[in-house]
C-alpha cells in the first residue's frame, strides 16, 4: 500500500500522528520511517517537517533507519535483570551475530532492548514484532528464532 493510501485512512489532523506513523512504519518491509514518509506525513497533516521529525525521533517505537523484517525487543527492566536477562541478551547476540541496535546481514532480525514490557510475572521477556515471549532461556530462544527463520 502506498503511504498516501495509508494517510487517507486518517483525518488530516495532528492528533492522529502516532497512529499514522505506526501504520506507515508497519507497512514498510524494513520497519522504519523513510524521509519521504515523514515529508508526506507533514504535508498531509499540515505540520512542519521539523515537527514531524521531532515526533518520530522522540518515540522509541519509531525508527528512522532501516531495520530487519523482524524486530526483537528484549526487556531490560529491573525485574528482567534480576531474572537474568543479561544471559538472554548474550545468547541472542551470539546466535544472531549482531549487537544491540544492529540488524543481521540477511536482513531478517534487528536486535533492540526495551524498557519494561509489563510481563514481569514471567520474566525474562522479549517481543518479536507484536508477539510476546516469556520465561526465556537459551534453548527456548533458539527454537523461537528458528520458527521465524523457517517462515
Amino acid at each position: 500500500m502506498s503511504n498516501q493510501a495509508i494517510l487517507n485512512q486518517f483525518a488530516p489532523e495532528q492528533h492522529n500522528i502516532l497512529e499514522v506513523l505506526h501504520a506507515i512504519q508497519d507497512n514498510h518491509p524494513q520497519n522504519y520511517l523513510t524521509k519521504d514518509a515523514l515529508e508526506e506525513t507533514a504535508r498531509y497533516l499540515g505540520m512542519t517537517k521539523s515537527t514531524v521529525y521531532g515526533v518520530a525521533g522522540y518515540y522509541t517505537m519509531f525508527s528512522l533507519k532501516p531495520r530487519g523484517k523482524h524486530v526483537i525487543r528484549v526487556c531490560v527492566s529491573p525485574v528482567c535483570e534480576i531474572m537474568k536477562v543479561n544471559d538472554v541478551l548474550l545468547h541472542l547476540e551470539k546466535e544472531l551475530g549482531v549487537g544491540q541496535g544492529e540488524t543481521t546481514p540477511c536482513g531478517l532480525f534487528t536486535l533492540e532492548v526495551s524498557e519494561c514490557l509489563g510481563q514481569c510475572q514471567e520474566a525474562p521477556s522479549m517481543m518479536i514484532n507484536e508477539q510476546v515471549y516469556n520465561k526465556l532461556n537459551a534453548e527456548k530462544i533458539s527454537e523461537i528464532l528458528n520458527t521465524y527463520r523457517a517462515e
Binding site: H15, L21, Y59, M61, F62
Partner: peptide, 8 residues
C-alpha cells in the same frame, strides 16, 4: 483508543 509509541 489512541496507541502510544514507546515513552514512559
Amino acid at each position: 483508543i489512541k496507541p502510544g509509541a514507546g515513552s514512559y
